[in-house]
Amino acid sequence: SGVGSLSGSYVAPKAVWLPAMKAKGLEISGTFTRQVGAISMDLQLTNKALQVMTDFAIQFNRNSFGLAPAAPLQVHAPLSPNQTVEISLPLNTVGSVMKMEPLNNLQVAVKNNIDVFYFSTLYPLHILFVEDGKMDRQMFLATWKDIPNENEAQFQIRDCPLNAEAVSSKLQNSNVFTIAKRNVEAQDMLYQSLRLTNGIWVLAELRIQPGNPNFTLSLKCRAPEVSQHVCQAYETILKN
């Protein structure tokens, strides 16, 4: 499993995004983090070629949420054969926007002195959950009523042996805020909100029955195409 972070969202372990055989010896592994509002792409570059690598640069294609490098890719010294460097690339969300399929797809180009290489990766949506995503309770009730039923999506989150308190606290570490909790017919009903970096609000109802590790998550959003990715983020956060 991945590493938690003290002051931020869940961070998945690094995965290989660009295998050396597809990039003339350059191997890239990475993951995404969000810590106190700062998004970054944490990269590991390994030189598996026979020659030194220099002149690194990185560029993102337009993407659904405008993710873009906030600084150049800083590799301070030439990368010798068999050498690995760890780099944290700060990101912002003010880049060009183009809806991608799937929504969380990111196309990346990396260059060095040898060539330019391309790869795609999927980012977890919770890196876009902002710190001030707790909706006012009155606003929540009004918005819940206002969003049409067609925009409600329902999901099952299976095999999650946590109680309502643990669920709330885990989700809050990733900027999903519990606004109200009710117990009806022996079920805990959690009402929650989150907001994405582009201003989209997502309202949630999470049903938990004591002793039952399967939860029902209902999401209401004016942009319903984000719902399945938000559900995936819930699963990732709750199961790690």
């Binding site: 309770r137 009730l141 009806v184 017919e185």
Partner: peptide, 20 residues
């Protein structure tokens, strides 16, 4: 929580979702 009528509104919402 403040007794501003919202507590009751959330209770009604939860009830209506359980017994539509």
């Amino acid at each position: 929580e403040l007794d501003d009528g919202l507590d009751e509104a959330f209770s009604r919402l939860a009830q209506s979702r359980t017994n539509p």
